[in-house]
Amino acid sequence: MHLLELIKHHATQAQNGVPDWMLGYYKRSAISFADGTTDIATHVCWLQSRNFTIDLRLPINNQQVSAKPLEQYTENELRTLGNYEGWEAPCEWDGTALSWLNDTSLQYHNRWTEPGILHRIGNCMIELCPSNAYVEDWRLQPSGPGPLVGLRLIDDTCLDSNSVLHRGGGLIVCGDYAALVLGRPDSQADAGHSAQPANQFREALVAAQGNTSALKPLLQFETSVAHGSLSDGYKIQLTTCPHRNGQSLLPLDGFEFDEIGQQVLHRFTDEHGRARLRRFSIDTIEADCHYSQATPTTHDAKSWLSQEAETLTRYTQPLFSHSL
């Protein structure tokens, strides 16, 4: 069935998880560090389902790597790819801070080890870390009301060869946006990041320059963020896989439940003509979420804003991200 039909007739909302104000697609507007410096350029994307997160971090557009055969990448291009970040991770909210654990990640080590202390006003969500090493300013991206779908990938199998292509990851659809993470087939490569040496993935890529057979398993991973709709499809805007830029995120037909209704199955034929089967566990399937740019405040605060609007609002405008 089409994903729209699955959402319409088989909504299964998670009974717990993050609050409604945290749901949706955020882009980072800025990160400020304890040394007084600030980054407003890096593309950083955060898509939030009820109980897991998808995260993507890339350099500015003209510094991203173009698609080409693996053996043709230069050392500098591989070093750039080696600094890409993309991951999916389950999360826990304690009412003040959000913690992530057991991620499926492009990197072999965890670059972001601290929980996030979160507070949101309007479309601005501020994230503090306990060590005070940095503070991040996130902006909820504009979207009309729409579905929230959170599915965590169990595995992605080529049925023709009966081989696992990806293990771990997830799919989040939130209104006008969607993101997909496909982990490497060897799940052990994505385990125990905190114990891995820093930047091992980047150094492995550089060391494998010119060697397609060595590069391919290192790069058999995807995190992509897309824009569109469930009726017209989602087109990739940002991705860890250069050859996937501008492509459709995934087919929207071929979804079904397993025999006992606890997993979502996705059957499709890929661009190479291979029959594929993805198995997902269900976080949440919700037909109608409102990704509002506003947050509640007190009656007195509203009166104050109205009273002082001539000066307070003379230059105000929506701000979604500083990323270039």
Results as ranks from 00 to 15, higher is better:
T240H: 03
H119T: 09
Q200V: 13
N132E: 13
E88M: 14
H299L: 11
M22K: 01
H9Q: 09
S131F: 07
G192F: 13
L250A: 03
T284M: 09
R50W: 01
L81C: 00
A191R: 08
L312P: 01
S213H: 07
I154K: 09
S323F: 14
A11W: 05
V225A: 07
A89F: 07
I172H: 01
L165V: 12
G246H: 08
A191Y: 15
Q317N: 10
S194P: 04
D39C: 02
D300Y: 13
R139H: 10
E256S: 15
S292H: 08
Q64G: 02
N245L: 14
S303H: 13
D103A: 12
D288Q: 12
Q196V: 14
Q63M: 14
R50Q: 12
P251F: 03
R152M: 14
L58C: 00
D103C: 05
V173I: 15
Q220C: 07
S292G: 05
D137T: 15
S49D: 15
H227K: 14
D94T: 02
E127C: 00
V225M: 11
P69N: 05
Y108S: 02
L159F: 02
P69F: 10
S143D: 05
T223W: 04
S49K: 01
A204F: 04
S213Q: 12
T223H: 03
Q262M: 07
G116N: 11
P90G: 09
K27I: 12
S229D: 05
E127P: 00
S29M: 10
D288I: 11
A208N: 03
L101K: 06
K216W: 07
S161E: 08
Q247V: 02
L159T: 01
L151Y: 00
D155V: 02
P185A: 12
V65A: 07
R244N: 13
G175Q: 08
L265V: 12
A67M: 04
D35W: 01
G170Y: 06
T12Q: 10
G36Y: 01
G228Y: 07
A41L: 07
D155E: 15
C124P: 01
T96S: 09
T37A: 08
V18K: 02
T240D: 03
L106K: 01
C124H: 10
Q196F: 09
T157I: 13
L252T: 00
A178W: 03
D156N: 11
K27W: 06
Q237F: 09
N162E: 08
L215K: 00
P19C: 04
H43G: 01
L3K: 02
C158I: 07
H166C: 03
D39A: 04
I172E: 03
F268S: 13
D300N: 08
T38M: 05
T240P: 01
A294E: 12
S143L: 09
R267H: 15
R57Y: 04
Q237M: 11
H109Y: 13
N62L: 10
Y84W: 09
H272N: 14
T212Q: 06
N76Q: 14
